[in-house]
């Protein structure tokens, strides 16, 4: 039930943002986050963005995986 997916911010309007994954677009509530900007990736759960996805950390984890294997 705690399923949440990374979606890209297309536009921001007040407490809401239009986010997309592939061809799917959704209007989600962003009031649990601060300073959401276009182009950022948000982790979306039940119509709310619960966190920003840290692209630097995502890349670091992938880099680290590359190193150990």
């Amino acid at each position: 039930m705690c399923l949440a997916i990374p979606m890209k911010v297309e536009s921001v309007k007040g407490d809401f943002a239009v986010v997309s994954i592939g061809k799917i677009k959704k209007n989600v509530n962003i009031s649990l986050l601060k300073n959401v900007k276009k182009g950022e990736y948000l982790i979306v759960h039940a119509g709310f963005a619960i966190e920003k996805l840290d692209e630097k950390e995502a890349k670091k984890t992938l880099e680290f995986l590359k190193e150990i294997i």
Binding site: H45, G47, I50
Partner: peptide, 13 residues
Amino acid sequence: SVGFETTTPSIAQ
């Protein structure tokens, strides 16, 4: 209103 900490902030909001 069910769910763990993931879901509860959205319900609270």
